[in-house]
Nucleic acid binder design. Structure first.
Lengths: 193, 193, 193, 193
DNA sequence: CGGTAACCGAGACGGTACGTCTCGTCTTGGG
DNA sequence: CCCAAGACGAGACGTACCGTCTCGGTTACCG
């Protein structure tokens, strides 16, 4: 991950242009041809940057992916669940957004790449949760539903979250579809009326 | 994957000794230091085999892992669920076996390696299900429970399976524990009394 | 070189068809793309022959080339010098035949290949002398000229031969021309009127 | 006013240490065991260098040999012919130096290796001429002899050179001796009194 | 205002591994 | 015992990247 800012130093400041170029190159490569083709030399070439500029600010490939993810180069900002007061409806709608996103080969391949990256760097996994709104859905929306009495206080929130997102990951790993039937079934299973 | 047997050809037959040596080497490397250190040259050296002998019979690294998995070099034969007539007890016991297996760093690292391998080769994923008894648990034990009336006929068997195994995979990816608490909670969630 | 025939042995006799196919394949490869592309596997494939059949009868690549040369697959039978009673005229005519032969890229490349082969197998060099008529020219035609009194008895026959053929080899090695001027000059130099 | 046309390159300069190590390794391998054992991997290993560093600067094995030759790693600097005013004596002495050099198996094997290398790279042949003093002998010493009237103006200098050096090459190819008798005879033949 | 420390691009370096090719030997089954 | 086929252990080929190091050039603070 990126280093912290020091108090005062000499010399030029970090080039924002280079930083953006690098994270953009990471995203383009990842989306275009998957994790295997994500080479440091390729990124440097695409970004028009020296390799040292990459290694100066990121230690590993996983850090690069994590950062590119955090900064929104990989997954759009559309996965914040709404709160209409109906937890089942909100969950279903959120799942539909995810299903739509994963419908393209590019995006499901991206998710597979992120799974690989998260093996080498746990931060990738965490950020993936964030970008896809998993945290927002379960840590916030579900907690709110409990607070409002819509759900019982002993609801196993994180277990439901893992079961739900785990189902999705498994399906994507085996190139399966995330369709309406699946959404209905999984919601019924994990959030019975 | 391995080629099919032809009708009749001339020349020496495939060396079983080499085949075993290769699959053993794959398993040893995978268990010892993960997917990243699984190099074709290393496998060949460990197995005392020419590289061409590997490429003659397997096209990709994923094929090697899939075969090593299928032939039982990676995961032991201990995950067949029992049928005591009590589906909750049988599921819980099966989960405990898996939890015990994944308790060691070696084995949880192995599962992470298999997840990576399954991205490049879907067969790895399928065979992982088989070896860990996921198929046996859900396609057989659950079906039997439905047949015996222990479970309702409309039980979403595969959805439960994915949710359960997906939870485990997610937990292992983020180096989390699979403990008794988790087992109790997930069973309660997915198989309510 | 090929093995000697034993007195009596069991089993089928050596396949003449295979022998010819192999020597033909050697010649074709050598003429088509030079010594570097002369691989044992390529020869076997071209000849429709098992590799062992080659190794059974020839020990080295050089032996193959030597045999292909001896049997006339590489250099045609047109280099026997005539004896018109005029040694200068006969030598000049013989040189013109050689010059014509070496005019094509294929043949000059062949000679370069034979030079390489002769480094690994001296027999190739000797047979090259034979096929190009060097032996016939100097060991026979020159001796005859001495016997008939056309040349002095102390003529350094083999030295002249080496000087002449050496000039040609050097020129071919450096891709130089063997033209009429060269022939006139070298004859004047080595066989002064 | 002169313009600074050369745009200075950025980045590290070529490593002279690596360059010398590589050419030395080429020479050692060539002298120790001939052209066949001259492998790129072996050179890289001997020189303590990555293979890419070789391929970065030399395209072929022949280029390596040519460079090693040019830089004097293969043939010593002792073949400049003298000018005593007696061309026959100078030629004879030069030939004796060469004969002495070629007396060892190592050096005659080296010459055979250089002949092979020159087939793939004409520069090797040219540089061999230079290092052995052939150019100096014929293009300079002979021209001087003509200028001083010691030799007739129409002397076929290069033809004599080729005939002489060709004789030597042929003899070395067939593992023959370059002895005093040979030298006397060839000088008498090509430079009659 | 000159020194100097950290930035940048480029890219050479010693390495590892890739997947392919060929070597020479060995092993089948058929003639 | 010959033959075609071809598997085998071995190892070189030339390429792609790795992560480190070294250039010359460019800021931007600091004394």
């Amino acid at each position: 991950m990126e280093q912290e800012v020091e108090s005062k130093r000499r010399g030029p400041e970090r080039s924002e242009k280079a930083r953006i170029a690098i994270l953009t190159a990471v995203a383009e490569r990842l989306l275009a041809s998957g994790y295997d083709s994500l080479t440091m030399e390729g990124i440097a070439a695409d970004a028009g940057v020296g390799k040292q500029t990459i290694y100066r600010w990121w230690k590993t490939k996983g850090d690069l992916v994590a950062d590119s993810l955090v900064e929104g180069f990989l997954i759009p900002d559309v996965f914040s669940p709404k709160n209409t007061g109906d937890i089942r409806a909100d969950l279903t709608n959120w799942l539909k957004t995810i299903a739509k996103f994963l419908k393209t080969d590019t995006n499901s391949e991206l998710l597979r790449s992120l799974v690989i990256a998260s093996v080498n760097n746990p931060e990738v996994g965490e950020n993936m949760y964030n970008r896809l709104g998993v945290i927002a859905m379960f840590n916030e929306r579900f907690r709110a539903a409990i607070a409002s009495g819509e759900l019982p206080a002993d609801t196993q929130v994180m277990e439901i979250g893992d079961a739900l997102f785990g189902s999705i990951v498994l399906r994507v790993l085996r190139h399966g579809k995330i369709d309406e039937t699946f959404i209905t079934q999984i919601v019924n299973l994990l959030l019975p009326k």
